[in-house]
Design a protein around this nucleic acid. Structure first.
Lengths: 235, 235
DNA sequence: TTGATGAAATTGGTTAACCAGATTGGTTTG
DNA sequence: CAAACCAATCTGGTTAACCAATTTCATCAA
């Protein structure tokens, strides 16, 4: 068991080292936006790591949008300047994985916004999807079953109706971690889920009526218990 | 040129297909949380794609937190239930890449929060980093040079001082796209940058004085021009 | 019958060879 | 002299063979 964590740590460590070396290389060689990075083979040789490790590091930086690879051509530095590039790489290297409090803070922030946007932009189709998620949740709760997943799916349906793809993506990123943490800390017990039915219905109604103020207010009520786990998150 | 876009499209397409097939497989085989996925070799054979394609798709789903691979053991379904899993996979498949408006909306939302958190939680070290970023920005502007990057680095320093790793990560994700879009649409011309100096200084002062209300207010002022590009983003 | 044992099969990860398309630079041709 | 051309080279992507750790299961001992 200890070994597994160790290997994962080492793997992450190797990737961080490669990213750091790439940053130094870019600095040292004075590479500018649009310039081509040395080939993957060269980098793997120079950094003394496997080519697949190099590829994974490049993929990660592609995800952050500061590199992009073109098949049969090369890997290029994105159109952000050297200063921004260097600063961002430093930040990426310094990134820690999120704690529960940080997740909840962010979730509340995102959802108080998506619910407003959803009430302004939702289509009829969106309403149907939300209604379905709601019914699934209600069924589970009435049968006294755990309904954390159905809960989150309703919230994801709202994010979907907000028509903001960035916030939608971010909600998707934090949702699994929220679920596992909820189950770990037993945030939701059954009577809370029971309350949740009405709270969800209120939110749904506000969105249906296209009333952003009300929607936001009802979401806030719904998050009241969450606030307790994150008490100094002033609105 | 057309070919390059095509290959990228196809690559993304292949990955989406694999994810869809994984979803169907999980549904069909009734795989529960904690269960093991078939091996990468089997999947690549069954889906008729290369094993590396399978690995990349799995990596993506690992990033979203719904799978995790253990070396020499297997790939496992994360501890979120089948319902949540299935819903999330559908959402992931439906994700579109972000438009500028969505990016700006999200950035404003995040920054109005991080600036408040930063003013409550900033350390002396954070202040130094922000001061450095600020000086770099001012220098560039006074020399009438483009300072988009330095601008963003100041904002990233704020996100860093907010001590919320999730928001910090999200800011890093959207920053490069913000920069490229800014340069594409020429959002910042020189006299605006000139105004920016004072606006930045105001924000910095508010954070230094640990005044969250003021900090948020000054950030709002700073975003006034951005609002124009995203006018129906009501506060 | 039950628990321990260990060899064989299976796993994700790594490596190296290979592929097809893009790039390059020297040559040819008008 | 400049433009067109083509082959050698270089690129990221793919494939297949290999590795070491893990899992499995038939075997054996108590």
């Amino acid at each position: 068991m200890k070994v597994e964590i160790l290997t994962n740590y080492e793997k992450h460590d190797v990737q961080q080292k490669i990213i750091a070396k790439l940053r130094d290389l870019i600095e040292y060689k004075n590479l500018e936006p649009g310039d081509k990075l040395p080939s993957e083979r060269m980098l793997s040789e120079k950094f003394e790591v496997s080519r697949s490790n190099v590829r994974e590091a490049i993929q990660k930086l592609e995800f952050f949008g500061i590199l992009n690879s073109k098949p049969q051509s090369g890997t290029f530095i994105a159109d952000i300047g050297r200063v921004a590039m260097s600063g961002m790489l430093d930040d990426i290297l310094r990134l820690e994985d999120p704690d529960f409090k940080s997740l909840v803070e962010t979730r509340i922030l995102l959802e108080l916004k998506t619910v407003k946007l959803a009430s302004l932009r939702r289509t009829e189709e969106d309403l149907v999807k939300m209604r379905d998620a709601l019914d699934a949740y209600n069924n589970k709760v009435l049968n006294k079953q755990d309904a954390v997943e159905e809960d989150l799916l309703f919230h994801l349906a709202i994010a979907n109706a907000s028509k903001n793809s960035t916030m939608n993506t971010f909600m998707l990123i934090i949702t699994p971690e929220i679920i596992t943490n909820f189950e770990k800390y037993h945030v939701c017990d059954s009577n809370q889920s029971f309350l949740g039915i009405q709270e969800h219905e209120d939110i749904y109604e506000a969105i249906k009526k296209q009333d952003p103020k009300m929607a936001r207010e009802k979401m806030k009520v719904h998050f009241k218990t969450l606030y307790q786990y994150c008490y100094n998150t002033e609105e």
